[in-house]
């Protein structure tokens, strides 16, 4: 349905996209994931015929975005970063206008306006001036605009930005519903966003695809270096920090101390190191008040994907021995329970 071949885009001398190759099948929801400035918006703008590529081709529904731009635009709904709404129009007159320029006749227009107003929960706001709506509602009007002509392909640039948690859930389920007869590309810089609605993720960084996989695989990759948020009350005069730093590849991040209760993030290069660490610290009388596995964040995914293989492998071998030496039944039990917690989340 969507095909990108060697797509490259330069803004003057700045390379925004470099040799992007990508295929999206019909009915698929693809998440474009990347930090700000990674090239997500650029890729979407090229697909929606708003800007041209410097080289390479992009095809939507078999039509080239440059050669047959009008045909592509007939089949495509696009929600840009800023919802393209006219502040002085009412929701309904705006959708009426968009329906007209998207070539819907009067009958279809009336029908589609009712459908999108209903699906986006805008029925009660149909007569309101868009300028008086909150950001979340404007975003919905922007989505309504993209869906009004029931296009085969939907391109949504950060569709849930500015929405409150309830609205985010609604919009995500809306996008999932759409997938049956639409192809959707959405961009985001929030990993959970992708896991909630997409089948497949493409991660781009500095204009290049660094990973292309299913959501679960990507998350697993990121978890190779597991982290925990820990609140620890050490035993008196216990040198707990030494215990941790003795483990190779361990990291203590953002340590804060209040009344001898420490709050920090622990990162280990091997998940199993936690067992030994736990038993060692608790055996001296310390109390763990909180052990919370941290889910992979986008940053982790990036560090993981961009780091070289050498740095990944080194610590693992040395740490395995240590676990065998020191693990106890108690700590094993604890570790399993945190593992379960991780999976539930």
């Amino acid at each position: 349905m969507i095909e990108l071949n060697n797509l490259t885009k330069y803004y003057d001398n700045f390379r925004a996209l470099n040799n992007i190759n990508l295929k999206v099948e019909k009915g698929e929801i693809l998440g474009l994931l990347g930090p700000n400035g990674a090239g997500k918006t650029t890729a979407m703008r090229i697909l929606s015929c708003f800007i041209p590529a410097t080289s390479g081709t992009a095809k939507v529904a078999g039509f080239d975005v440059f050669e047959d731009s009008i045909e592509v635009r007939r089949r495509l709904g696009y929600l840009p970063e800023t919802p393209p709404v006219y502040m002085d129009m009412t929701v309904e007159s705006y959708l009426e206008f968009v329906g007209k320029i998207k070539e819907l006749n009067k009958k279809e227009r009336e029908k589609r306006i009712e459908i999108v107003l209903d699906r986006l929960g805008l029925v009660n706001n149909r007569d309101r001036i868009i300028g008086t709506l909150s950001k979340g509602y404007r975003q919905r009007v922007g989505l309504a605009q993209a869906m009004i002509h029931n296009p085969e392909v939907l391109i949504l640039d950060e569709p849930t930005v500015g929405l409150d948690p309830n609205q985010i859930i609604e919009i995500r389920s809306l996008i999932k519903d759409l997938a049956n007869d639409h192809t959707v590309i959405l961009s985001t810089h929030i990993l959970s966003e992708v896991s909630a609605s997409c089948n497949r993720v493409v991660i781009i960084n500095e204009g290049e695809i660094v990973a292309e996989d299913t959501v679960t695989n990507i998350e697993n990759k990121a978890l190779e270096k597991p982290s925990w948020h820990i609140i620890l009350k050490p035993a008196e005069k216990q040198d707990w920090k030494q215990v941790i730093t003795n483990i190779e590849g361990s990291e203590l991040i953002a340590v804060s101390n209040q009344d001898n209760v420490y709050d920090f993030t622990l990162r280990l290069s091997n998940k199993d190191d936690f067992d030994s660490l736990f038993s060692k610290i608790t055996s001296e009388g310390a109390i763990f008040r909180c052990i919370e596995p941290i889910k992979a964040s986008l940053e982790d995914v990036f560090t993981k994907l961009t780091s070289t293989d050498e740095t990944k492998e080194k610590p693992v071998s040395t740490d395995e021995n240590k676990i065998k030496e020191t693990s106890t039944d108690e700590s094993k039990g604890k570790q399993t329970s945190t593992d379960e917690g991780k999976e539930e989340k």
Partner: peptide
Amino acid sequence: KNKTIELLLTSPIS
């Protein structure tokens, strides 16, 4: 300025 040009230029209108 209001980026509504993105709507016009990505619609099937010349």
